[in-house]
């Protein structure tokens, strides 16, 4: 089973929910936590895993042999990102814009284009107690997060099949988030009862609906703001799976890199209940 943890708004508590759910489940089940927020992975700050391996993530970018080029221009026509610019028989490439689709190489009639790997990030894996941990790190300056996200998810092939995977997604609703959430069996949308939390939740709901991933909402910092978030969920028939109260002690624990379920028994109970709600909701859809 794959459960992704996403949100529209940043800073709502995705990592808190993902890490504490993983810790709760790890007491009885095999669990893997995949941190797909490759621009700023932070689950390791709480899990403190011992890393066992790392692999480079690359995309294939074009290299042009101008001696073979006939200046037909097809490479430039196919590229949606303008990463290759044919000016007659002089062809410029912009590797940092390339998404590695291979279209230019495929279309070149004279075989003047070959591909070279461009490193855009790394995947690292290891263990934190009973939890398997995988995370990706996008290379600074590289704008292309989805291949690193996919590499993190692909690494799960090395895990036992019955493992429960929890994916900590990036914030927002853009390509890296879609790459993280796609293929999940269930998605937790973490939000907070503020106007920003509600606004960005509606975007996230649209995204997971489009992806046809069953989902439910976790309200973090419950007790803040007003009731419009709950009203929205009721009106849209969205299941609220759990509410984590707004509590200064929780914030202090988080700020120290602590684990909520180990310090607060009521939070542990909330995560056990959350897991039952996920299973019950996933069965209904």
């Amino acid at each position: 089973m794959i459960i992704s943890v996403a949100s529209g708004k940043g800073g709502t508590g995705k990592t808190t929910i993902a890490v504490n759910l993983a810790l709760t489940l790890a007491e009885t089940e095999p669990v893997c936590l995949m941190d797909c927020d490759v621009e700023e992975p932070n689950a390791h700050l709480f899990l403190k895993p011992v890393l066992e391996g790392r692999a480079k993530v690359t995309v294939p970018v074009p290299v042009v042999n101008e001696e073979k080029c006939t200046g037909c221009g097809r490479c430039g026509e196919i590229c949606a990102f303008n990463a290759i610019l044919p000016l007659g028989k002089h062809v410029l490439t912009f590797p940092e814009l390339c998404h590695g689709c291979g279209g230019c190489t495929l279309l070149c009639p004279t075989g003047a284009i070959r591909e070279e790997p461009l490193e855009i990030g790394v995947v690292e894996w290891g263990r934190a107690g009973a939890i398997s941990h995988i995370h990706g790190k996008l290379k600074i300056g590289s704008p292309l997060a989805p291949p690193v996200v996919k590499a993190v998810k692909n690494h799960k092939q090395n895990m036992p099949e019955d493992i429960i995977s929890i994916i900590d997604a990036p914030p927002g609703t853009s390509c890296p988030v879609v790459a993280s959430v796609s293929g999940s069996d269930f998605c937790l949308l973490v939000t907070e009862p503020t106007p920003f939390g509600l606004h960005d939740l509606t975007l996230a709901v649209d995204m997971v609906s489009e992806l046809q991933v069953p989902f439910g909402v976790v309200i973090n910092r419950a007790g803040l703001g007003n009731g419009t978030l709950v009203d929205y969920c009721k009106a849209e028939n969205i299941h609220i799976l759990a509410e984590i109260p707004f509590d200064r002690r929780y914030a202090a624990c988080y700020a120290k890199g602590g684990r909520l379920i180990e310090e607060f028994p009521e939070v542990k109970k909330a995560f056990q209940d959350l897991w039952h709600e996920i299973c019950a909701t996933a069965e209904r859809v």
Binding site: G76, A80, F81, N82, A83, L85, L87, L92, F94, L97
Partner: peptide, 15 residues
């Protein structure tokens, strides 16, 4: 309307 590389596209057009 380019997804990326707007300046490259514009330069190509002017060329």
């Amino acid at each position: 309307t380019a997804l990326g590389g707007a300046g490259i596209k514009s330069a190509q057009f002017l060329a």
